[in-house]
Structure formats: C-alpha cells, structure tokens
Design a protein around this nucleic acid. Structure first.
Lengths: 336, 336
DNA sequence: AATGATTATGAAAACCATTAAATGGGGAAA
DNA sequence: TTTCCCCATTTAATGGTTTTCATAATCATT
C-alpha cells in the first residue's frame, strides 16, 4: 500500500538504485535524471522507509538514552542538551526512564541494542560490573553523562564532584562558620552522593575544623528530606550556622525549615545548594548554588558520542566540565 | 558478524521459522524443540534484530512523541506519564523537542513517520491546517496530549481549560475580591492561553463585575513575566487584591513581586496559579493552584494511543480529565 | 488399521532499502 | 578506427526477520 522506492523507480523510468542516489544526495546523477526522479517522488508522495534503510545500511541514526527520571528538573535539563545536539547531527533519541533500578537499566540496554541504536547515552548513579559487561558486549559506543564508572573504562562527561563539594564547604568556612552542616545525597551514589561528601569532609579537615557527625545528615535529593533533616539540625544544642545541601531541592527545603522555625536566611543560617537548577531563582531568598552545567553535560556527552559513532579520533575520553559557585541571597555578601 | 536467527537455526538443527516461533512465544513448538532452540540462543548469545523484525512485521513497537520542551516542568511530567504507560505496553518512545515552531513540528512528524513509528503523540499549542494535513496523510494513529484541534478532528486528552479559568477566578471572587487580575498566557495558545482567559472573563461577568482591561496582562508562562507584570499591577492607583496566573511559574513570580514590594501574600493579595507543578510546594507561601493532572494526561493519552494501535474500539476520542483547585497558603482560608 | 483433525516444522517469499559489481554509452587519445 | 577511461545507470546480492503455505508428524476416533 505505501509507496516504495520501486514505485518511484517505475514512475520515473529508472532503477531503484538511481532513486536511492537521488534520495541520499549522491552527486553521481545526471541533473535531468534527478529532476525526473524528484518529480516522481513528489507525484507519488514517496516517503523513504527508515527501517528498511536501517536494515540495509546498518545505521539507524537513532541513539538510546537511559535516564533515571525525565521528570526531574535536573535530568530534563540534561536531556534537552542531549536532544539539541542529537538533532544537530541528525540523530533521534529513544528515551527511557530507569528509576536507577539496575535490572531495569540492564534490560533497557538490551532493548536498545536490539533496536540497533547507533550509540548509547547512559545516566545513572552507580556503574556496576553488570553494566560494564552489558555495555561492552557490543560494539555500539556508549557515553556516560553526569555519571562515571570507577575505573574510567567508559567515556564520560561530568564535573569534579569532589572539588565542588570542597569549594562549597570552603566558601562557607571562609565566611567564618565553624558549624557547617551537610545534607548529603545517598552515599551509594558515587559522585553526587559520596564525592560531594568527601569534598565536604576534606574542606573541614583542611580548615582544622574536623568532621562533626551531628552535622551530617543523609538525604535523598528530595525537598522533603531537606526540610526534615534541617529541622533535626535546628534542634541540636549547637545548631549549624551554615548548611551545604548536596542538591538544590534539599537546599530549598533547608531554607524553608529555617524560616519556619523563625530564623532568617542568610543572617542566622547561610545555605548553599548544588546544581543550580532553574528553581534557585524562584525562591526567596534566591539560592546560592554550585553550578553544574546540566545542559552542557548533556550536549558535550552527545557530541562526544557522535565522534565515536563516526569513528573520529577522541583525545580524552573522560571529560571534566568546569563548575563554579553562583552567589545569591541565601549567603551573605563575602567579608572583605 | 553478529549472530542471526539463521545461526541459531543451524546450531539448534531446526529452521529459522522455528527459531522465530520460539523467540516470539508462539505456543506451537514442541517443548523439547523449544529447549534446544533456547539453549542455542544462550550458547550463541543471540539478540534479535528489531530493525529486521520491524521491516518484516511492519511494526516497530516505537511511538513518536513531539513535545515543546522536555526541560519544562510541565511537559517533563507529562512525558513521564507517557513513557510509563508506553513501557507498560512494551513500546519505546522517540522523543523530539519542537519548541512549538511549526516548521519544526511538521518536519518532526515527517521524520517520525519515516522511522515507521506505530503511533504519534503530539503536544503543542495551536493545531493548524498544515498539522492536520501532515497527520492525516498517513494511517499512523495520532493522539494530542494537553492539546486540542479546533474541530476535534483528532483524538485528544486535556482538561476543560475554560472551566478551569472560570473556577479559579470564581474562587477569588467568592472570597470577596472585586479587583481580580489575571496574568494570561500567550493568547495564540488556544487552551492554556485563550481558554483560561475566556473562563476568567466569564466568571467576572457572571459575578456582575465585568472586565477591567487594566487588570489583564499577557505573560509568556515564564517566572520573569509573572514578576514584571505583577509589578505593573501594583503601580496602578487601584491595584488588584487577587491575582490569577495562567500557570504556576508566573504565579510564583507574582508572589515574589508582591513580597518584594513589602506586601503580604495572602493577606494583602491572594494568588492562584495553574497546573499544580511540583514547584508549588517549594515556595513560601505555598501556592494555591488549579490541578492539571499532567502525569495522567500523558498516561491517558498514551493508553488511548495503544488502543488505536491495536485497533481496539474507542468510545470517546476527545477525553476531558477532571481538574480541581488545591488550596494552600497563597489564598486565605475560605470565609464561612 | 484407516481416517481425519491437530500440531509441529520447514521452505521460500515477502519487507524496502543500500551497495558492490556489471554494463553501456560517449568522448578523448592513440 | 580502435582502445581506454569515465560517467551514469542498472543488475543483483544483501541485510535479518516474519509470515504464508505446504508438508510431516502425532494423536484420537472408529
């Protein structure tokens, strides 16, 4: 029923190979022939079948994207970066939510490979041996975005989370704080969880303050957890005067907990978040945050993937993007 | 190089047809044969090629999703609903951002049809003649999510935006307000823009108040626009005592503008937003908002699409989901 | 044991393109 | 004129499945 390349060939009085050349912009076609073919295509309303093309050419111009949760402010921004660059290079995206469940992740990798994607972009928390095995069981190139495997076996694009945690903590210490609390992410998340926390600890030690267990709480990256953990902090006999939260949602929860207990941000407690999601501008006081360039991470990761898919040479397969702190009103202007 | 169904057939000593049956769960296979085939598959590490399958079966178990902007809080939630149900029915999603640019939308429709998607899920603002033409140039079923065409020619899933605008406005009027302002969306957006505004006007008229042009501002759905439009409202000689914003981001901007000018929400000005995105819980005061069930819209739209793809009977192709107002602290407790 | 009804299996034709190799025609060089 | 080369085009093979149709095997009935 649908129009095939064969129909066009007959209509134009040429072979299907010639039609194929015209469709694919091959220059070896006489202008007159091209015109005839184009006319036939127009007349018949021919639309090339990408599935057949994929089978014949072994290329689908499609990449698989495995993401924990597209409805997250953080990942949706990343996804946008991925998709924009993909579009730029004429790829489409098959998007899959994993909820960071390993079995789902493995199953998705498999499904995407069955679908013959030209490349794979993976976002998640921890990369286990099973992941590596699944991803290397094939020649399909893979790039990790905002994620890294322990041995750097796979190409990845991230920021330096240890340094980010260090910087945020040090910024608070430099403002004269001795009691700097941290609301961490889940510590089984090696980068956003563990590394930021390690950076925090190192900054404390370097400043001669040392770690106070009472001032550390494990959050889960959600607003609620920032709220409740901070309430607990405020009930300490010596509550913190500054809080670093491992992401912005928790930081905003922290701010509200502080405000709800009658205290002022930043005068009583200063707060720094992490990621600099769009939300930080939409709260009062606006949130000081470590800028993790989500869009760029996605974009760079996708760009890197295109290089692998084209067999271009890649000089450095572990990319670290710069971060910085964007100061807003949840911290006081720096002391001179 | 990769293992094909033929390799498995040889290894197992059967024909490819039998292997195909085993792989696809066809019951007409002797248990012993099935076992042999399964063993061969395991031994060879066979992974079915979905592209070849798609060519042969004319089904790709993939649906195309055209969305204005995946990084938007609103649409990413919708997308999650879509993806969850898609997964449930064993479909994958090709996700494309349109930025609501018509030429891009049309081009994406075409690309997705080339890729032989089994169905199409479209989100956007206005559905023009060109869209309808592109979408009906094919037998691939399409469902509109959070979008509707003027003639209801296409299946769609939305809420009643007129009624939603009416209800929000009436809620404010019922609280005794005479000067109820509205920050609308772009009025070329028929539902979120125009319809909500129409509902607002009707509620005013029904209450015998009538439209006051000074109390209407056209926003663009972004935080900034809520902020600036509200500042303008507050400079009027008779500023509004209540504001209905066509979405939550603008409503939060409105709250901040009010607070920044030293006034109190809700005591001086009450504010109602629209959509009930996750953000509404993360501001102080928390925002009263018209609940538009984004996740459900996505989920229901996808479910509807599966019915069309399976040629199941559909009783009603224009689905209206219920909405309601979730009251929080940006409005005062209702008068008895 | 013959018959018919099921069930299990195989052979081969789609599916719709790409692509490598073959072909034919035209022009230039010998 | 013959030979060689180049360009445009065609022929035919290929990609990995599903699916139809035919055949073979099994089983229950009589």
């Amino acid at each position: 029923m649908p129009v095939t390349i064969y129909d066009v060939a007959r209509e134009a009085g040429v072979s299907m190979a010639t039609v194929s050349r015209v469709v694919n912009g091959n220059p070896n076609v006489k202008p007159l022939t091209r015109k005839k073919v184009l006319a036939a295509i127009e007349r018949l309303g021919y639309r090339p079948n990408a599935v057949a093309r994929g089978l014949a050419s072994k290329k689908t111009t499609t990449v698989g994207v495995i993401i924990p949760d597209i409805s997250s402010l953080f990942f949706s921004e990343l996804a946008r970066g991925i998709e924009d660059i993909a579009t730029m290079y004429k790829y489409n995206i098959i998007l899959c939510n994993s909820d960071q469940r390993m079995e789902k992740e493995l199953q998705l990798i498999n499904t995407l490979l069955e679908k013959q994607v030209d490349g794979l972009l993976f976002m998640g928390a921890e990369i286990k041996e099973d992941h590596l095995q699944a991803l290397t069981s094939t020649s399909v190139p893979t790039v990790l975005a905002a994620t890294r495997d322990a041995d750097n076996a796979l190409p990845s694009v991230t920021i330096d989370h240890f340094q980010a945690g260090y910087d945020a903590t040090k910024a608070l210490i430099d403002r004269g704080h001795k009691r700097v609390a941290m609301i961490t992410g889940p510590l089984n998340d090696p980068l956003s969880g563990l590394m930021r926390f390690e950076g925090y600890k190192k900054a404390l030690v370097d400043a001669g303050i040392g770690l106070n267990e009472d001032l550390v709480a494990n959050g889960n990256f959600f607003y609620e957890s920032g709220l409740t953990k901070t309430k607990q902090f405020l009930q300490l006999s010596e509550p913190p005067t500054a809080i670093f939260a491992a992401n912005d949602e928790m930081a905003i929860g922290a701010i509200h907990a502080i405000q709800d207990s009658g205290l002022n941000v930043p005068n009583d407690v200063e707060v720094i978040g992490h990621d600099n999601i769009r939300l930080v501008e939409m709260v009062r006081p606006r949130l000081t945050s470590v800028v993790q360039p989500m869009y760029d991470i996605g974009a760079v990761a996708m760009r890197l993937l295109t290089k692998y898919m084209n067999n271009e040479h890649v000089e450095e397969h572990v990319v670290l993007l710069p971060h910085r702190i964007e100061y807003r009103e949840s911290t006081r202007p720096e002391q001179e």
